[in-house]
């Protein structure tokens, strides 16, 4: 162990430092989405009734399904890290691939959900939407921007996880050097957390 610590020193490998950096980055993400949540809170306060009727148009089933998909992907992510810790490379690769798969399924669902709404003429600045009340316009604006920004994060997450997958296959991520995977996991869980709040705020307004 002392031997290991010595070599770590030599290559400037500071795991705690790397994780602090990652957490600080996540804080900026919290504030980034936080700005949107503030916009949401203000407009929802002003347009209670409109938000209620507009939200009723969204499919709770798809929303709930996507929530469960993301939660499950968080599980497989955590298991992928646990696996690499005990040197189970194959298991880690399987769990990482599953995480990516769930992320893709999430986006496919999202695609059909958006597609259906756009098919009904409900998208920003559409004549259909502009004919509705102010609250409805703002609700759909928030719906598209919030889920859109979240989907962008999912997309970036997929890219990140694919990179980690390649690094794991090539033995660049191992049971002694896995902080990259752990940090990618932190990012992925944050994407999950954002969705944990988005789901009730957009789909379950009563």
């Amino acid at each position: 162990m002392a031997e290991l610590a010595k070599t770590s020193e030599a290559v400037h490998r500071d795991y705690t430092g790397a994780k602090i950096g990652m957490w600080l980055f996540l804080f900026t993400e919290i504030l980034l989405f936080g700005g949107l949540f503030l916009v949401y809170a203000v407009y929802r306060t002003k347009h209670q009734a409109d938000f209620h009727t507009a939200a009723a148009e969204l499919s709770v089933a798809i929303g709930a399904a996507n929530t469960m998909i993301l939660l499950t992907s968080s599980l497989t992510m955590a298991l992928a890290i646990a696996a690499i810790r005990r040197s189970a490379k194959t298991a880690s690769i399987v769990f990482q691939s599953l995480t990516i798969l769930f992320a893709v399924i999430f986006l496919v669902n999202k695609y059909f959900e958006w597609g259906a709404k756009i098919g009904h003429g409900l998208y920003p600045n559409s004549p259909e939407l502009l004919a509705q009340s102010h609250g409805t316009i703002l609700f759909y604006g928030l719906y598209y921007v919030m889920t859109g920004l979240h989907a962008l994060h999912v997309l970036i997450g997929i890219g990140l996880l694919l990179t980690m997958l390649i690094l794991t296959v090539r033995d660049r991520i191992t049971n002694t050097d896995f902080v990259k995977l752990e940090n990618s996991g932190l990012y992925w869980h944050l994407v999950d957390i954002v969705w944990i709040y988005l789901f009730p705020l957009l789909y379950l307004i009563t």
């Binding site: 407009y43 502009l130 102010h134 316009i137």
Partner: peptide, 9 residues
């Protein structure tokens, strides 16, 4: 989108 446009609320 209308977040900052008074005409859209």
């Amino acid at each position: 989108v209308g977040f900052f446009d008074p005409a859209k609320g």
